[in-house]
Design a protein around this nucleic acid. Structure first.
Length: 553
RNA sequence: GCGCCCGUAGCUCAGCUGGAUAGAGCGGGAGACUUCUAAUCUCUAGGUCGGGGGUUCGAAUCCCUCCGGGCGCGCCA
């Protein structure tokens, strides 16, 4: 990457200046380059002179002057200027920009991709919504973010497994089964109370009606426990297949659908428990089995096995964690909601107690969504039965606009989601701006091709790109090589959203100022090459976000 | 009370591993369609970066503190 080259140059300048005694520094400051916000400040700038001024006992501008005098020549750099309090502003050569175009236009080049992950295996678990009801917009946000994170990790050299944890063993499922049971029994004229705190959505009644239609009164005369078991199984099965369908429609594909129940059935729960017991991380108290998580940084100890003998949800979590590491992952990412943040310390404690470095477990929290309709806040709750379904959202605004909206905000930022506003804004959603740029390029390329004009990436041809609109566009293309790794490292897909919007804007300016197809064949070929590169980068960026890049709009 | 997240333009939000004049979209105002896609573009108005201290050559960004909002602190999940 170019910044590595620039860093080497400056490091060499430090060495040379030290060697001839013109700059005395005990410790050289870290050399970092950044893209200046203002064009006048060049392509890349460094503030090392400011940082090093104190140690050198000299004014920053003087330090900068000295460095400048000792800077080795480079064919990538056309000028270096000292500006402001002591910034060193570098201007890069056209050849460097042309190289960017060439690499970006190469479909096999993997422009922007890195191998930072060096093949590390990462498990990304997200959505993992309980199979007690249809999937809602909150899960939609999780799905969009999880997909984007997984894509970003893959693009930076990680091997990613996308996983959905299916909670089919807990007390919520029980409650769900009993809720269906009540409706079912009522449909046969049998008096039945909805369980306290039970599920109230219409879909519960629908599920009961479906089962009644298929099985008739088959379940009426079963023993209550057995009957609830049946409803849990049938209900969650049906709900899960709907969840899968909704996610599929949303464009989210999981590699692994993991059943909590399998942890119980395989004995994984017992194995994990034994491991903790064997290393003294567990104790019995008040008839229950506790994990001594407070030894590993948690506020207090946590129950694994209740005094009733039933394992807690957390016990499954521990077994699941062990299972994931057992499958060879180097890193586990759990995308959780803010309501689970209190359970993060115990998860990390469990990792440590099981002998895995806690740094290998990462739990980004996706903040909540405040759902409103026409300004009136709604409470999204499955149990209360008021929520906006993912399907409904897709129907109203479409997958691309929904994803883009979810990804524009940083995940740690709460999202105000007014269905009416998003629906109304759907046609003017920024996602279309970006897609439009892509479609426009496709159209230009098509037209050019029909006239026998093709892009040409030869150095001699690209040399024709000298207009400021062309230069800006090439610079913005180059920025993808920083935007992608940064977004991945910071777990910040919104950076890709920003980038892609900016790229579309810069392209629009180029489109306005530089007519692509003209009488000048060589210039046309050069501009077509720039179009091809831009189109590829837009498509790559949108692809990372799970958003389509249409050829036509 | 403790913990986590948030507080930046009228609204929704970027920017936060410290940098040079704090950005975008929407909304407001004024314009541009004989032109490779007007789902576009140009210009414009709009800010005590919640308040106050501190660190620094430099703070929206780091530290402390206060205020406001949200969430969490179960042998629930």
């Amino acid at each position: 990457m170019i910044t590595d080259h620039l860093t080497e140059l400056v490091a060499a300048a430090f060495d040379a200046a030290a060697a001839d005694g013109s700059l005395e520094l005990e410790v050289a400051p870290e050399i970092r380059f950044e893209r200046p916000k203002r064009k006048e400040h060049g392509d890349w700038a460094t503030s090392v002179a400011l940082a090093g001024a104190k140690g050198a006992g000299r004014p920053p501008r003087e330090v900068a002057e000295t460095l400048l005098e000792h800077l080795p020549p480079s064919d990538q750099v056309t000028a270096v200027e000292i500006a402001g309090p002591g910034f060193m502003n570098f201007r890069l050569s056209p050849a460097w920009r042309h190289d960017v175009v060439r690499r970006a236009a190469d479909p096999a080049g993997g422009f922007g991709r890195t191998n930072a992950g060096a093949g590390a295996q990462v498990n990304v678990e997200y959505v993992s919504s309980n199979p007690t009801g249809p999937i809602n917009v909150v899960s939609g946000r999780h799905a969009a973010i999880g997909d984007a994170l997984a894509n970003l990790l893959e693009a930076t050299g990680h091997k990613v497994i996308r996983e959905y944890y299916f909670n089919d063993a807990g007390s919520q499922l029980r409650l769900f089964g009993r809720s269906i049971e009540a409706h079912y029994l009522r449909s046969f004229g049998i008096e039945a109370e909805l369980p306290e705190g039970g599920y109230r959505g219409d879909y519960i009644a629908d599920l009961a009606a479906e089962i009644a239609a298929e099985d008739g009164d088959l379940h009426v005369h079963k023993p209550p426990e057995e009957r609830v078991d049946a409803f849990v199984a049938m209900g969650s099965q049906r709900v899960l297949s709907r969840i899968k369908a909704s996610l599929e429609r949303f464009g989210t594909h999981f590699d692994v659908w993991f059943l909590e129940r399998s942890l119980h059935e395989s004995g994984a729960l017992d194995v994990a428990l034994r491991r903790l017991t064997d290393n003294g991380s567990v104790e019995e108290r008040d008839g229950a089995v506790w994990f001594r998580s407070s030894r590993f940084g948690d506020d207090k100890d946590r129950v694994l096995i209740r005094s009733t003998g039933a394992p807690t949800y957390f016990a499954s979590d521990v077994a699941y964690l062990a299972d994931k590491f057992g499958r060879g992952f180097d890193r586990l990412i759990y995308l959780w909601g803010p309501d689970h943040h209190g359970t993060v310390p115990r998860l990390l404690a469990a990792a440590e107690a099981l002998g895995f470095e806690r740094e290998r477990v990462e739990v980004p929290l996706v903040q909540m969504i405040t759902i409103a309709r026409g300004g009136a806040a709604l409470k999204a709750s499955k149990r209360a039965g008021v929520y906006v379904g993912l399907d409904e959202l897709i129907d109203e605004v479409g997958v691309d606009a929904a994803r883009f909206t979810f990804l524009t905000r940083a995940m740690e930022s709460p999202l105000d989601f007014d269905i009416d506003i998003v629906t109304r804004q759907a046609p003017e959603n920024p996602v279309y701006y970006v897609q439009y740029a892509h479609a426009r390029i496709s159209s230009i390329l098509l037209r050019a091709s029909s006239q026998g004009l093709e892009p040409n990436l030869d150095a001699g041809v690209l040399r024709r790109l000298v207009h400021s609109g062309e230069e800006d566009l090439m610079n913005k293309l180059a920025a993808f090589e920083e935007a992608l790794p940064e977004a991945a490292a910071l777990r910040a897909p919104q950076r890709i959203v920003r980038y892609v919007e900016e790229l579309a804007a810069v392209f629009s300016a180029f489109y306005r100022d530089c007519k692509v197809i003209s009488e000048d064949t060589e210039l046309t070929q050069a501009r077509l090459a720039l179009c091809v590169a831009t189109k590829a980068v837009i498509a790559n960026g949108l692809g990372l976000l799970g958003v389509s890049a249409p050829e036509k709009m």
